[in-house]
Design a protein around this nucleic acid. Structure first.
Lengths: 223, 223
DNA sequence: TTTTATATTAATGTATACATTAAAGTATTT
DNA sequence: AAATACTTTAATGTATACATTAATATAAAA
């Protein structure tokens, strides 16, 4: 949940574990005990537990009483929930930006992100494309400035991350997605509030539906 | 963040502190130290800290390194953020219910909640009205069934609670609000998806705007 | 008296200790 | 051999211990 500094050990544990979960080095289904994990991180159980409590609140981990720590898998239903929320939330931010008539200077991070997406497509570099996509969404939310909206959306991105990475290569090349991002930016620049909202909304709906279709097609029941 | 059982002491501390914050027994600006609070709760610092970490993630409390624990106030800007999110999120749930063509039986909790709102209006009992209103919103989200949506909205309700209670008597009597809830339910029953969405959305926008206007009018800069 | 330096206090951040108890393993009985 | 009872192990939940250090109080210097 977008943690602040906090004492370095708790924060270290939180960041490192989160990163290891994102990168699948701690895969879903992984099971560990506190002494084990504390030792691995080179700290005592106390700060580790505080970090775990946060990761559990983030929905990444479950601490089962007397059974240990489990890394939670992402189920299709989770993706459905996540995309529904993102579909509701993000277009709101896009609409707000359009309403604010921001200068191109201010919108530069967004414009740059779309450029990077295009470049990545040309280079046929899906990783880079995904990074640019991530950046686009985060920049848009940061420009919007609703801290809660940003932190909730970030949480959802974190939860969905593994599934998005894994399915990246199962999708068609994201030409359309890239174009949609550009269109959103154009509407924002032009101050076309409702268009910005609806294009972004459609983008999210389509992206979510596609992802779920892939999970179904490849029978990926958990990631 | 809608905590599960967890070991009872951590959970106790979490629930009790949350309740004390909601009820303003621990008012915004309150400052305490860990030993103090642990003693008051009859436990050691260890479980207390785990609870505090969660409350901090919930945005109710801040743990300032070496300065202690502060109960955070709600600023008008917080309310703005919260209402923006609720405006984006809840109508989605209403639309979904409408799309699902639920039976009146299934919708009973919603229908009952609106009845209670009407009754409370007749009795001129604002507390009861606010309770019924709360219940309406939670029931609607529970019927929808998106766990993440529910837990996020609950978090936002918790954050906004004090401000809503305090301003309850500064508003006009909520006839209009009550009527709007009824209309939403009717649209849900009739399966009118877009109407359910837009009425709910307008309801949230208006309610948010009214609340912010009151904060401005009475110069309530923090609650 | 005001400022600076020093000493004291006490709260946090973290490690460690320990009681409880679920789970796994061993022995006993049938 | 299967089932049951008993032991052992080890992980959690919680308390306590302790080093560090910010904040305060006190003393010394200007």
């Amino acid at each position: 949940m977008m943690q602040k500094s906090r004492s370095s050990l708790v924060n270290d544990a939180y960041q490192r574990l989160k990163q290891e979960i994102r990168s699948n080095r701690l895969p879903p289904g992984f099971h560990g005990t506190e002494p084990e994990m504390a030792e691995r991180l080179g700290m005592s159980r106390t700060p580790l537990r505080e970090a775990l409590v946060l990761l559990e609140a983030d929905g990444l981990v479950e601490m089962k009483p007397r059974r240990g720590i489990y890394i939670l898998p992402i189920l299709p239903q989770d993706m459905e929930e996540i995309y529904e929320l993102l579909t509701a939330i993000e277009p709101e931010a896009a609409a707000n930006l359009a309403a604010r008539k921001l200068s191109k200077e201010e919108l530069k991070p967004l414009i740059d992100a779309t450029s990077r997406m295009e470049q990545a497509l040309e280079d046929d570099d899906l990783e880079a494309w995904a990074d640019a996509d991530d950046e686009f969404h985060k920049e848009l939310l940061m420009l919007h400035g609703n801290k809660r909206l940003l932190s909730i959306a970030s949480l959802l991105f974190d939860q969905a991350h593994r599934a998005r990475v894994i399915t990246l290569r199962m999708r068609e090349k994201p030409y359309r997605s890239t174009a949609e991002h550009k269109t959103v930016v154009e509407h924002i620049i032009e101050g076309e509030i409702e268009k910005a909202r609806s294009v972004y909304r459609e983008h999210r709906k389509r992206a979510g539906a596609e992802l779920l279709a892939i999970l179904a097609k490849y029978k990926l029941q958990q990631l």
